[in-house]
Design a binder for these strands. Sequence first.
DNA 1: CAACGAAGGACCC
DNA 2: TACCAGGGTCCTTCGGCT
Length: 441
Amino acid sequence: MDNNNNNKNINNNESNNNKDNLCDIDDKNKIDDENVLYRLSLNPNKGGLQNVDKEKINKIIYEVSKGSAFFKNAKEKEKAHFEKIKEIKKKYLFLKNQPMEYEKQQMKNIMNKMESDRDLSQYIVHVDMDAFYASVEELDNPELKNKPMAVGSKSMLSTANYEARKYGVRSAMPGYIALKLCKNLIIVPTRFERYHELSHQIRNIIANYDPDYCPASIDEVYLNITNFLNDNPNYTPSKVTEELREEIYKQTRLTASAGIAPNICSDMNKPNGQTELKNCTDEILKFLKDLPIGKVSGIGKVAEKTLNELGIKTCGELKENMVYIKELFKPSSYQFLLSASLGLGRTKIENKWKRKSISVERTFSNTSEIQKLEDKLHEISCKLANDVKKENLKGKSVTLKLKTSSFEILTRCLTISKYIYQQEDLYKVGKKVKFIYIIFF
DNA sequence: CAACGAAGGACCC
DNA sequence: TACCAGGGTCCTTCGGCT
């Protein structure tokens, strides 16, 4: 599916020079709503959407959102994040004034070592279906083609077709907001069974090129075509990928995009196209130099903004600043960012996925009636027991998640001594957990 | 007293 | 009219026990 984490700052008309911003961190103690909008990831910046009138779209979204409890909550989050950023900036400014000679040399050594360990022997392909759910709906109902359409509900959209995107409609956008952007938008409900059916079909095609492919989501797969290339010397990586996409289209009438690279870091593709990154260090570094950090899978809007505020917008800049990142971030974040800055992903892909949790959640209208809450608990425990049974699972830790009317998320967990799977037990434990939050209020 | 479980977040689709 | 999902994974922080 399309990921929408490539947001840019919403107020790109204003002076956004981060080098300047670094100096007036204390003046900037007001959280403006534009920052909140940025956080909501409601600003359309998706590839292939150059024609949309961002200004107008943002205005509409803002008008619909402002004042809502959801918006208020986002504002609170933004405030907290802002404080964090302030701290980091302070440290950053301090470090910038230090010589850091030793650390710089050390970083150089670390990077050299990682560079020399770079594995360029593998050809990894990342296949990603274009607007998957929407395309499936068009496939089954061709009348929807060329009309603005999105899959989901009034409250939330999963994905939008390209016609709808012209209006600024996109995935993870509430349907009622989308309707404000596009009055004629057709919203069709999701049909997961159907998507899974096609997903299965697509994976079977992919298995012909790599039986050990790794599904990344319902519409995304990683595969290693190195063996295939060895067995078929007349193929090139891009020819294999072309053929694979062609085959998917032939059998399903759905288009896919793909990225080819020496590791599974690549995610740069356009609708119905493919991008190849040659197995060569210079190519990779050139590609990364101007790649916005938000494009990297794993860097979401929070991390993106944090880094942006340090003046780091591209992977190239990230690489240049790794000495500071090492001091400013937690070890695991640092490790991740270091790999990202060098364009190092895994070169081994595994498909041994093991489920670690299973869950059911439902959002309902505001209530403080205990009976209604218990009814909901009953409802989700039934669905959960059903799902658990289907997968032949059992568990001994039950977490109850509660979203308040102000969009706060609370979770309470209870671990018991024996494994359970039956609805009655799930409900019973759930009720016990629930007690905790009833006392809470 | 460190390991650990619980709660909260960030992220992805 | 009013209105922002649901299903996962992984990481960090924190505190009361063993």
